[in-house]
Amino acid sequence: MYVIRREWLVKRVLLVTAMVVVLGLALVVYFMVKESIPAFKQAGPANLFSSEWAPGEGRYGMLIFLVGTLATTAGGLILGTPLALGLALFLTQVAPRRSRALFSRGVETLAGIPSIVLGWLGFTILVPWIRELSGSSGSGILAASIVLAVMVIPTITAISRDALEAVPSTYAQASLAMGATRWQTIRRVQLPAAKHGILAAIILGMGRAIGETMAVAMVIGPASVFPTSLTSPTHTLTTKILMEMGESTGVQRSSLFAMGLVLLMLAMALIALMRRVSGGRSATPEVVE
């Protein structure tokens, strides 16, 4: 009797926990939609997705910030992915067994650096450096991309490394035994076998880059203007919300919610994409007998 009661209790508790989480998520989406409605109603989608941000004149365009988000994210991935993949290959294929753990620890430590620290280093070292080299203000998409690259490298490296390690060593052995070089083996056997995992790693890195706020805010400018070059100040969706949140009311405040909603939808689209990519995983099929 006691056992049955306890079973029942455990089930209920778990159910409630699950409900709370799902409800929480639903509430987040609900509030974002509800709070953005005034902006969509009063300003209209055309206004909201225009490139002019001038709340005083009733202009609430978020295109600049959307472009800023996409550009810095793309930049971070373009700079970070090759390095991260190279590092993952080094860790799995080249590094001697004993130093692998050491390098892996290093990568994990890099993942633990608070973003404010990276932003601060970017602001104090990277931006002045770019300023000197380019003669511009120094802040902008380039600086933000570099900071984001540093942030996504640990994520992409760790997950790509796991994907590469999951490739059965018999594949590499078969390839090497046929006289393929190590590089040919990596390129023709191991990378293709791990490609689903590597794609998932890049998408996860992308998710991290899209949502990053603080570190980007410190090196992006900020300025609500279209970037004219990689080193001209601009804004991203996240940094714009950060800057405006304290002092906005009415439609302006609602338009910030609309930006948040766009960001949320981008993130959800990424997760859906990742599920599709890693759902079709055929990286490590068992050899069927």
């Binding site: 059965p168 018999t170 594949y171 052995q173 078969a174 390839s175 035994a177 046929m178 006289g179 393929a180 040919q184 023709r188 056997v189 293709p192 076998a193 055929s282 990286a283 099929p285 050899v287």
Partner: peptide
């Protein structure tokens, strides 16, 4: 000096690509 292993270890590719692997590498 080619080698065949204890457990069959074809690549996770098509039948054709498995056989064409060596020549392609060459």
């Amino acid at each position: 000096v080619g080698m065949v292993f204890q457990k069959p270890n074809p690549f996770p590719k098509t039948v054709y690509e498995n056989v064409a692997f060596g020549p392609r590498v060459l």
